[in-house]
Amino acid sequence: MLVIIGALVVLACVAGGYVLSHGHLLALWQPYEFLIIGGGAFGAFLTANSPKIVKASIMDTLGLFKGPKYKKQDYIDLLSLLYDIFSVIRKEGLLGLEAHIEDPKASSIFTAYPRLLREHHLVDFITDCLRLMVSGSMNAHELEPLLDYELETHHHEAEAPAHAVAKMADALPGFGIVAAVLGIVITMGSISGDTSAIGEHIAAALVGTFLGILLAYGFVGPLAAAMEGKVKEDSKAFECVKVALIANLRGYNPKVAVEFARKSLSSHARPTFLDLEAHLNGARG
């Protein structure tokens, strides 16, 4: 929602200031300038990126209008899932997890949280880490750097669409200059004609520069920043899992390990201790 509000504020302030300065809005309507700048930037975007990045950029842009992927209730479910996993480890040992991690969709632990079960990347991350713990007999010092490498790779891939859109934003002022130069070429071609027509051509050329800068810094650049911010926020779920697993390997009991994970969450999305405790008591009851 803030993406829409921000864009409207930019439009209202820029257009409003222009009109209040006795400018004419119709003078800014230059569809061919839009074609040159927008089409050129989008074409360069397609050239520079793989189909996977292009598709992910579109999906991430649409995702901004849906809000964060994981809300407070999702984090309560995630922490409860981790608690259930650690309880099985405490009662049955690591081997008691084998059936659950080999087929999460048939697991009584994972199927208790259908919303999380649909998050394939998160479930795969959890089960892969648990497989290492079951089969590799890894201690916390060995597992932690491995998880850091995996999270770094995940973050890099997840942020790639935002970086691609940011590069397109950087290119927009350049395409604005291209449009302006083409406008000057047209102006030079009609310099022997009507003086008023020359003025219109120069105005159109300057609009090209204006549009390139406005689109870059008023819309596309902030959009890329919002995409990157959403990726970082959504990645907190993976960080939460990592912290909980490391705490469990260090010998903390399930409640304390889950508390370590809860503390790693952003304050606005973090469930309170009492909320989580009530949920766990309700699940056990």
Rank of each mutant, 00 (worst) to 15 (best):
T47L: 13
T47V: 15
T47H: 09
N49W: 03
S50P: 02
I53T: 08
K55L: 12
M59L: 09
M59E: 06
D60K: 03
L62V: 08
L62W: 03
L62T: 06
L64E: 02
L64D: 01
K69F: 07
K69G: 08
K71Y: 05
K71L: 14
K71G: 13
K71N: 14
K72I: 09
D74F: 12
Y75Q: 07
I76Q: 00
I76N: 02
L79Q: 01
L81K: 06
I85Y: 02
I85Q: 04
S87D: 13
S87R: 12
I89P: 01
K91G: 05
G93S: 06
L94P: 03
L95A: 11
L95N: 05
G96F: 02
L97K: 08
A99T: 03
I101Y: 00
E102M: 04
P104I: 00
P104S: 00
S108H: 07
I109S: 00
I109H: 01
I109R: 00
T111N: 02
A112K: 07
A112S: 10
Y113P: 04
Y113C: 03
P114G: 03
P114Y: 00
L116I: 00
R118P: 03
E119P: 01
E119A: 04
E119D: 10
E119H: 01
H120D: 13
H120F: 12
H120M: 10
H121T: 09
I126T: 03
I126S: 02
D128S: 02
D128K: 02
L130T: 07
R131K: 09
L132R: 11
L132F: 07
M133P: 05
V134R: 07
V134T: 10
S135E: 11
S135V: 13
G136R: 14
G136E: 14
S137D: 13
N139R: 11
A140N: 14
E142P: 11
E144T: 14
P145Q: 14
L147E: 12
D148E: 12
Y149E: 14
E152D: 12
E152H: 11
H155F: 10
H155K: 13
H156K: 09
H156A: 10
A158Y: 10
A158K: 13
P161W: 02
A162C: 15
A162E: 07
H163Q: 11
H163R: 09
H163V: 01
V165H: 00
K167N: 15
D170S: 09
A171W: 04
G174C: 08
V178N: 04
A179T: 11
A180W: 09
V181I: 15
G183E: 07
I186T: 12
T187F: 11
M188L: 13
G189W: 14
G189S: 14
G189P: 15
S190H: 14
I191L: 11
I191S: 12
